[in-house]
Write a protein that binds this DNA or RNA. Structure first.
Lengths: 151, 151
DNA sequence: TCTTAAAGGAGAATGGTTCTCTATAAAGAA
DNA sequence: TTCTTTATAGAGAACCATTCTCCTTTAAGA
């Protein structure tokens, strides 16, 4: 099953577990807990947020452990990292491939918009610059519906 | 003159100076030096790189001063900041408004590609998400022509 | 030249992330 | 099941780009 065709969080969990196993990485309780959280989360959690959730079940877990698990999943291309220089990085475990994001600068919510015809843009760039494009990052910053109302 | 229609670095220097003056900010030797560097630089320098250049003329300049000047110009919308969580931020003083960048992951070169039809993408996003889009960030990562040859 | 508030300089503080080192435990073997 | 090995977890120090603090200097109008 391709990564962009997971319909349930169970699919994603199974897929991430399979990737870990196929690379001979051990399935530890901490790793399983993080995978479950990532596979289920509708938002784009930070390491700190994952940490808080894991600690509900495993109170002795170290923050460093979460960082290590996140780094591992990123390395295995099972997790997309959205790095921000001025605040915590955020993670997308459901769609671990580059795709556009819409970010509310007020409540920090991050959403995945549907978007057509981005590939042609990418090809135009490659043709005009001579670059071999490996990946990309497209973020739109603004105010979500709710935060527009409050103002 | 609109910011996206400066043809020479002199134009940009004059424009940035005018903005500082119109907001009653003092023109200090350090600020002038930074403005000149930003208006002239073809690349996208980091604070450290600006610092090194300023120190040629003013060896006692503090790194904190460069940070302060950069923050001020950013606040005045005369400088575009490209933040990177894992390395130094980079700055674009020639085109201080959001535009796509192409970034070589090997030599760290940053270029401005010409790009048509990005606005419709932005409108599609706003329509589909209900966000009021304020600004955006579009980065393509890959290998530039030179780094493709070396491998 | 004088005055004064803004700006600069130096170094400490910050904070998300990474590193180091030791203790623990997952998973295959016997 | 128990044993063995080695990856992984835990705890806290270290890192480093950036920001902050506090004091000194200076730009610019009077």
């Amino acid at each position: 099953m391709p990564k962009d065709d997971c319909n349930t969080s169970g699919d994603r969990l199974y897929q991430m577990l399979a990737t870990l196993k196929s690379h001979d990485f051990r399935i530890t309780p901490q790793r399983l807990a993080v995978l479950k959280i990532l596979a289920a989360s509708e938002d784009h959690p930070s390491v700190e947020q994952i940490y808080e959730k894991v600690r509900v079940e495993f109170p002795t877990t170290s923050l460093a452990t979460i960082y290590k698990i996140v780094a591992l999943l990123k390395e295995l291309n099972e997790l997309l990292e959205l790095g921000f220089p001025d605040e915590s990085n955020r993670y997308d475990g459901k769609k671990p491939f580059p795709h556009p994001h819409v970010i509310c600068t007020k409540c920090k919510k991050i959403m995945d918009p549907e978007l057509t015809s981005f590939d042609e843009l990418k090809e135009e760039i490659a043709r005009k610059t001579g670059f071999r494009i490996i990946h990309h990052r497209l973020d739109f910053f603004g105010l979500c519906r709710e935060c527009q109302k409050v103002e």
